[in-house]
Design a protein around this nucleic acid. Structure first.
Lengths: 235, 235
DNA sequence: ATAATTATTAGTTACTTTGACGTTTAATTT
DNA sequence: AAATTAAACGTCAAAGTAACTAATAATTAT
């Protein structure tokens, strides 16, 4: 079989920015790199793409390796291809970001990679261009969460409004008026109020809510402005 | 020097979805592929990444090769990496989309590639996964144009409101109320009214406008909803 | 027991933006 | 001079937004 001769081949990797929310702060899961170059330094979880894998498959595999989780929210972020980004060998990296329920993770924590959660505000210096990847991922979830309800992916099955609010406050690093926040939220119809209350953080207790999965899927692409009702148009 | 042994190398390409607006319709520039496989079929303009090139550099080079243009709007769209996408050899492709002023192009049209503009609504079948790339690009500019003023990139230096409106109508394949459209537009403060009128399309003539470049840059990242004034927060 | 405390939830108001629709204007053509 | 036509301007009710006041349900202190 004929091939594209003389074209230069290179390595292609996938790196994952894994976000979690502990109920108070937004965090990112990092590993201590175990091999040369830059062994011993903090890094994103990643790996090379194999011959028969698609990019999404590779990203899911890598995520599963580190967290034991499958079927979580995973989205391609950006391809990074500076010729010198990896000092050892020319490598293109496709960055993905994942939003996981941090509690599901903790049970199957993987010591093998020396993984650790870091506050997004207190990240160590990372290898290669991983700092830039993380910055891009933080920007992306800010962008996307302003228009789509993706942050629910970070929450456990049942959660409280104050939790949800501190998640938004963490992501945007700002204070939000709680009365207006509740009103916007409930007007989306995405929340189902449960009987039970969480009393761990207050005397009164905050009602638990769960996500209306059907409405969540239906409203996921909805967003507003500039074009009247663009969600009705995008096909 | 040590290398990542045993990891499988592959080809990495860049493909460009080039959008233009002729004053009435949104179009995409395609080429007739001149080599095996799939020679003679319609295709996006693309090329392999060379050893010392970044992805953006490669995309700009490819765009320049076909259009003769430099410094135009170019944005990374998505990396496509299905193992079978290119039947000949494993190739990852990073798709970019470009928004160009179609009039600047026409002067330096390049016959060498047998390039041709197609209506986005009447596209021929393309090679490999280029159809999917085009679909993704159309979706992306719909998404982005609903929130950011990117469509100005498709217009010449001076343009009329009716032109701008039919551009938006073309992108979203819908009718827009012209009174409300004008109001939204002028409220952005992006437009500067010129003395001159374009009388080619009506008796009364429509005033030409130009873009306030300073405000354009300042407002480019602005968008609305969910989080009050997110544009003030994103840093 | 009662009062104080505190996070949570409900309600109010002035203001801005939106979408739908009616009218006038500036030119050309008849 | 009248008819024509696209362009530009104007109005209004309804919906949404941000800022703020008030009430509630529990716990803790007296």
């Amino acid at each position: 079989m004929i091939e594209y001769t003389k074209e230069s081949q290179m390595l292609v990797a996938v790196d994952c920015i894994i976000f979690g929310f502990d109920g108070e702060n937004l965090k990112i899961l990092l590993i201590k790199r175990g091999f040369h170059p830059e062994g011993g330094k903090w890094s994103l979880m990643g790996g090379f793409i194999e011959k028969d894998e698609s990019l999404d498959e590779a990203a899911n595999k890598i995520l599963h390796e580190l967290t034991g989780l499958k079927g979580v929210y995973l989205e391609q972020l950006h391809a990074f291809g500076n010729p010198l980004r990896d000092p050892m060998e020319r490598t293109i990296s496709i960055a993905y970001f994942a939003l996981i329920d941090i509690h599901k993770y903790e049970r199957q924590l993987n010591d093998h990679y020396h993984a650790e959660w870091f506050l997004t505000t207190e990240m160590p210096n990372l290898i290669f261009d991983h700092n830039a990847m993380v910055e891009a991922a933080k920007q992306r979830i800010r962008y996307k969460a302003a228009l789509h309800p993706i942050l629910f992916e970070l929450l456990p099955r049942k959660f409280t409004i104050p939790q949800l609010q501190s998640l938004y406050e963490g992501v945007y690093n700002t204070r939000i008026d709680n009365r207006n926040f509740i009103r916007k939220l409930t007007s989306t119809g995405l929340l189902i109020k449960l009987e039970e209350k969480d009393k761990s953080n207050s005397k009164k207790g905050a009602f638990y809510f769960k996500l209306d999965k059907k409405k969540y899927k239906a409203k996921f692409q909805a967003f507003l402005n500039f074009i009247p009702n663009p969600e009705n148009l995008i096909s």
